[in-house]
Amino acid sequence: MKKPSLSSLLHVLRALTLALACLGSAASAAPIQVTDILARQVTLPAPAHRIVLAQARHFQVLSLLAPDPAALLAGWSDELRTSFAPDYQAALQRFPSLAQVPVVGRHTPDSFSVERTLALRPDLVVMTASFAGLAPGQPASESPLVGRLEAAGVPVIVIDFFLQPMAHTVPSLRALGQAIGQPERTEAVIAFYQQHMRTIAERLADLPADQRPPVFVHAHAGTTDCCSSPGTGTFNEMIAYAGGHNIGADVLKSATGRLNFEYINARAPQVYVATGTGSQTGAGLAIGAGVRATDARASLERLIAANRLGALPAVRSGNSHGIWHAFNDSPLHVVFIEALAHWIHPDRFADVDPAETLREINARFLAVPLAGTYLVDLQPGAEPVR
């Protein structure tokens, strides 16, 4: 029997290689079924690689789940450039291609252009239920925005890290991670998140109701008249999870509102937390990307004085702090909650270091690390994350 020639063997080898490549390609192109927070089953023909973010703030979530989140963007809103300018500049330095990502609107539903979005040929649009015009419990089928996109053949997934962060963070992460073909990396992020959240819950499991001290979160501190506060919304859930009592929730029945100076003083908060994004200048809290700890602390001192809050028990005792407001609409709220727990119950959380948690998130997950000062104490102690 004649032996096969070398060229024949090479031909067979090439054919086998091509066949295996085709099989691999077919496998990778297998449809992906994703369940979003509305319990909708959304099918994608393959991992999404042309995504439109209705709210560009969720680029940070993509940065957790994808090593090159910029490469996945077909379009986004302009809010990262405008409302979170320092963070946009940090992202732009890491991924210069972000400067060319088309804008499909501001961060509001009325400015979102369906026509511009469809012209970008996206294979996925990501938005929140409120952006889609849906009230809690309302089905996605009643959203004209979702309907128009899906009628044009564009899949839409609905996520939420803001309205119900405790319930929706994990399913939102899982849906987005599966949609972009990053299930393993996503499950690692989820495991990290759940471990840290579980530690907080376990240490507060036996906390009596009368040991939840009054907490005043001064939202967007210094940029409005005294004083903006969370009501029954996002921060309220976080304060409660961390073992505190939000003084704003007792009088504000909406997500946010304003507390007057007399009410704040009468409630005598034991913990004061100012928030800011770093995109404001002047009276606001200097916090976030590129900010030095000394500058953040100086701005915290200034805004407390400007708002006549120096007599609060929290200020007199030194239990006053500043933190990055944008932790509130991403899984990074775990850092916010750890910080609150550490400040509210220092005896139970003496060994919990939220700055170290952020450093680990930077090292393990974030494609665009958060470098700067993201939390600060009125007294020296909280160092910037590098």
Rank of each mutant, 00 (worst) to 15 (best):
P67R: 09
N362W: 12
Y263Q: 10
F261L: 11
N307W: 08
R116D: 13
T17V: 14
F327R: 02
R198M: 09
P139S: 07
D377H: 15
A339D: 09
R258F: 15
L124H: 00
L62G: 04
D36G: 08
R359V: 12
V52F: 06
M238T: 00
V104A: 01
P109Q: 02
F161Y: 15
P69F: 02
I190Q: 13
R302F: 12
L80T: 03
D206N: 14
V251Q: 07
A74S: 13
S5R: 08
E187N: 14
E262Y: 11
L252K: 05
G177H: 02
L259C: 08
T186I: 01
G153S: 11
V158Q: 07
G322I: 02
Q379S: 12
A74L: 08
F365M: 07
V376S: 03
P313A: 04
A209R: 13
G181P: 08
S130Q: 09
A306Q: 15
H333E: 02
V189K: 03
A367S: 14
A367F: 10
V273D: 11
S7P: 03
G233K: 00
P369K: 01
D160V: 00
S299V: 11
I200N: 00
I239T: 01
G75A: 09
H342Y: 10
A71Y: 10
G177N: 06
A274P: 13
I190V: 15
V376T: 09
L73A: 01
P122T: 05
D87H: 12
G231R: 00
Y193I: 01
L72K: 09
T223F: 05
V385W: 00
N307K: 12
G75V: 07
A314N: 01
S130H: 10
G75P: 08
E301V: 14
S25K: 02
Q60M: 11
L62V: 06
S172I: 05
E79W: 05
I337F: 02
I32F: 10
F349N: 01
W343E: 07
P109C: 06
